[in-house]
């Protein structure tokens, strides 16, 4: 989640004079403090986000014709994104105090179940 968004921030705030230094600091702190597992999740998040953006651009620029198919595809990326982001926040050691009842295994099981249900509906909606 973080790297892609930080690129976005870079694009959005070129004009800010102090911004570039702060963003470099952010990037450094992200690289240093984040466990590898979370980085893997983040890579997956970036992938999903790119896939969603491509679909959205296609819908806006070319056609939205089978609208249900577009919605199903887009909802699949958005849904998968938030489910993965949820998983990320649940397993993030920084949030250990917040999710007291959720173990890592439980978090992954929740994630798997959510994804299965989500993609059941996606498949049904593709048409």
């Amino acid at each position: 989640m973080a790297p892609s968004k930080s690129q976005k921030q870079t694009a959005g705030q070129d004009s800010a004079t102090t911004a570039s230094g702060a963003i470099q600091g952010l990037w450094k702190s992200y690289n240093d403090d984040t466990p590898t597992k979370l980085k893997t999740i983040d890579a997956f998040l970036v992938f999903i986000m790119l896939s969603g953006i491509i679909q959205f651009v296609y819908c806006v620029a070319i056609t939205n014709f089978p609208f249900n198919a577009f919605l199903a595809g887009f909802a699949s990326t958005v849904g998968q994104f938030v489910l993965t982001a949820s998983l990320r926040s649940q397993v993030n050691p920084l949030n250990a105090g917040v999710f007291k009842n959720i173990s890592r295994e439980r978090a992954f099981a929740d994630f798997a179940m959510g994804s299965i249900v989500l993609h059941f509906f996606v498949y049904n909606f593709l048409g």
């Binding site: 199903a72 938030v82 989500l118 909606f125």
Partner: peptide, 18 residues
């Protein structure tokens, strides 16, 4: 807090599509 995020997003993403 993140609990709210997890609860709301999983509800909304699945509920709306459903």
């Amino acid at each position: 807090n993140y609990k709210m995020y997890v609860g709301y997003c999983s509800w909304y993403a699945i509920g709306t599509l459903a």
